[in-house]
Amino acid sequence: MSKVGTDRVKRGMAEMQKGGVIMDVVNAEQAKIAEQAGAVAVMALERVPSDIRAAGGVARMADPTIVEEVMNAVSIPVMAKARIGHIVEAKVLESMGVDYIDESEVLTPADEVYHLNKRDYTVPFVCGCRNLGEAARRIGEGTSMLRTKGEPGTGNIVEAVRHIREVNAQVRKLTHMSTDEVMTYAKDLGAPYEVLLEIKELGRLPVVNFAAGGVATPADAALMMELGADGVFVGSGIFKSDNPEKFARAIVEATTHYKDYDLIAKVSKDLGSAMKGLEISKIAPEERMQDRGW
């Protein structure tokens, strides 16, 4: 008797991605470049976050043609984004055989109150988080992987740094609490008590936590690994750079050997200009993607 869609199978899939780079791609050609460069997975999108930001309007799940094209082009796992709370987009992506769904704040939320009940799906999910409360709520809903929200499409690492530091500091605090303090912490964070107990016992999150939202250079990727990320999502950074192929390889190497500074120096040479960054304070509050979802 075999069982599909178990926690071990779904979380295990994310474990296999550890130490790797997941790259946003918008067509088969980019997906192949990403695979060649050593990406552990690709995220199939209609537009990368910086273009979504520039275009404005409502951002939705990608056209299934694009997702299919990418799935046919590569042998590594393919992820795709569904809007927060959009049950049908998620079910459609699952039925297409996508390997992982990102319930993503990069798209315009379909539901401002409820996130998806991710236990209803065989396919695993990745969700964004800014702090332990958000991380624990998503785990409570059944996410199998987390990532920092950062501020997508900005090429500015500051928010991703804030989020990974916050989550990890709160995990450390929880780990050192006595058990009778956990319920009050759960109340303060708005986090499920049982999930916090599990985290306390493990001394870490029970699912992997990748960095996302603003990684623009090999050094940014290495920084997030240094701060405790299990791997890195690179959105707009790669295919908005002058030489995507070289850039992609450099990010992969910097992520694998994030403590080898000679190597990071070497791979960072002559990469051409990285994507133009955005100062977070220049983004109107209603356009900040990280504030979508709760």
Binding site: S2, V4, G5, V9, Y100, T122, V123
Partner: peptide, 24 residues
């Protein structure tokens, strides 16, 4: 991934009831 599964295996000389996790 949606076809990934867990199953109990017999491994010759090692285990009669090994819980195996298959991922892609």
């Amino acid at each position: 991934q949606r076809d990934s599964f867990e199953a109990t295996l017999q491994i010759t000389g090692i285990a009669e009831d090994f819980e195996a996790v298959f991922i892609r």
